[in-house]
Amino acid sequence: MKKLLVGISLLYSSITFAQKDDKAAILSDITKKIEQYYIDKDTYKKVDSLFQIESKKGSFNQLTQKEFAALLTERLRTVIKDKHFFVKYLENYTPEKQGNEKESEKLNNFHNSLENFGFEQVQRLEGNIGYINFKGFAEPKSSTKALESAMNFVANTNSLIIDLRENGGGDNGMLLLFCSYFFNNKTDLYTTYSRYNNKTELNNTQSKVSGDKYLNKKVYILTSNKTFSAGEAFAYFLQQYKLAEIIGEKTGGAANPVEHFIIDNQYLLLVPSGKITSLVSHTNWEHIGVIPDREIKVENALKAAHTEALRNILTTDTKTELSIPEIKNLINKLEQ
C-alpha cells in the first residue's frame, strides 16, 4: 500500500527559488531546515559534513531527481540513524496546482479513499475471531466512518486480530482515535515535545467514539519490521496498557514525529522535529522498535494469533459457532 497522505496542504512554507536542479542550493536548504527543526539541535553539523563529503566525491552528479531524492533519504537515515528522514521528488509540482487548503484536503482525502483509508480487509475468522488488516493512518476527519464501520463489524466477535504488518504509519489524530476504541475512559498516553517552538503537547484518547468500543476482550496485534511510526505507536501503547498482545517481528523503530517542507518547488522533505514520551515507560520506541510479546516469523503471525485466540476460547469456555472438537481440529490444522 502506498503511504497515506497526511495533509501536504499544511506544509510549512520553504520554497527556495534556485536554478532548476541546483543541487548545492537544495542541499543547503535541507541543512538549514534540519538546523532549525531537527530534534537534536547539533545534528545539522553532521548533515553539513555529510553533504560536503558526498558532493566532493561526486555522489550526486548525473543523478535524476528521483535518484537524488532516494540517495538523500538513504544517506540521512544511515548517517543520522533516524528512519523518519525522507526526501521525495515531486514530479510536476507547482504551488499554483496545490490550490487553497480546502481543495488540497479534498484531493488528499480522495486519494486516501482509493485505498479505503488504510482498511485493506475486515472479516470474521472461524471461531468468531475478528480480523482487521490496517495499512495506514489517514487524517481522522475523513477516516472516521471507515474506522467506525470496521469496529462495528467486529463488535460481536470474541477476540480481535489487528494486522499491522504492512502499516507504514500516518496521522497522529487517527492514531489517537483508533486507540480510543480500546480504552473505556479518556486516557493520557504520551507527550510530544517540539524543539523548534519549545512546546510540549499532551496526547490522549477520547472518552466517546462514533462506533462500538472493543473492551474487555482479547486483542492481538501483528507486527513486522515494516510496521512503522504511527503503526508502531498503536502497538506500543496498547501493549503498555496491557490491552493487546503483540505477535510477530520487532518493528522499525521510528518514533520521532515530523514536519513537512517543500524544497525548491521540487522535493518533499520530512524532518523529525519532536520527541514522543510515553506516560507509562517515560521513553519511546525510537531505534529500538516495539518488542513482540511473542516473536515469530512474520509469515506465521496470523496463524499464531488465530491459534492463540482459539485456545483462549477453550480456556474460558466461550461460546462460538464451533463445537469444542471443531475448535481443536481447527487448532491442529493451523499448527500444521
Rank of each mutant, 00 (worst) to 15 (best):
T144G: 00
L238E: 01
L189I: 04
N133M: 07
M174R: 04
T320I: 13
K88Q: 02
G289L: 04
G231F: 02
V209E: 04
K319I: 12
D48M: 08
F85C: 04
F137M: 06
Y241R: 09
Y220C: 09
D163H: 09
S49I: 00
K319Q: 11
Y89G: 03
G118E: 07
D21W: 06
Q123F: 03
N100W: 04
K20S: 05
N204D: 02
I221A: 06
A24S: 10
K145Y: 08
Q62L: 11
D293C: 11
S207H: 10
K20I: 08
H282F: 14
L125T: 09
A24G: 00
P257K: 06
A304G: 12
N216G: 11
G168S: 15
M151C: 11
E335S: 06
N167Y: 14
Y196F: 15
F110K: 00
Q206V: 06
V87S: 01
I129A: 05
V219K: 02
I34N: 11
S210P: 02
N312Q: 13
K45W: 00
L177S: 14
L4N: 02
Y241H: 15
G274N: 02
S9T: 10
E295Q: 13
K303E: 15
V6E: 14
V219L: 07
L334N: 07
V87P: 00
S323Y: 08
F85A: 00
Q266I: 04
I161D: 12
A24T: 08
L314P: 15
T205S: 01
Q62H: 13
Y38T: 09
E295F: 09
L63W: 02
R165V: 15
L330A: 06
N300C: 14
L107K: 12
L11D: 07
G253D: 01
E74P: 02
T251P: 13
N128C: 05
E103L: 05
W285C: 05
T318Y: 04
E232S: 08
I324Q: 15
L71P: 02
L27M: 10
D42T: 14
N284P: 12
G211K: 10
V280Q: 03
G248H: 02
Q65F: 10
E120A: 13
I324T: 15
Q98V: 10
G253M: 01
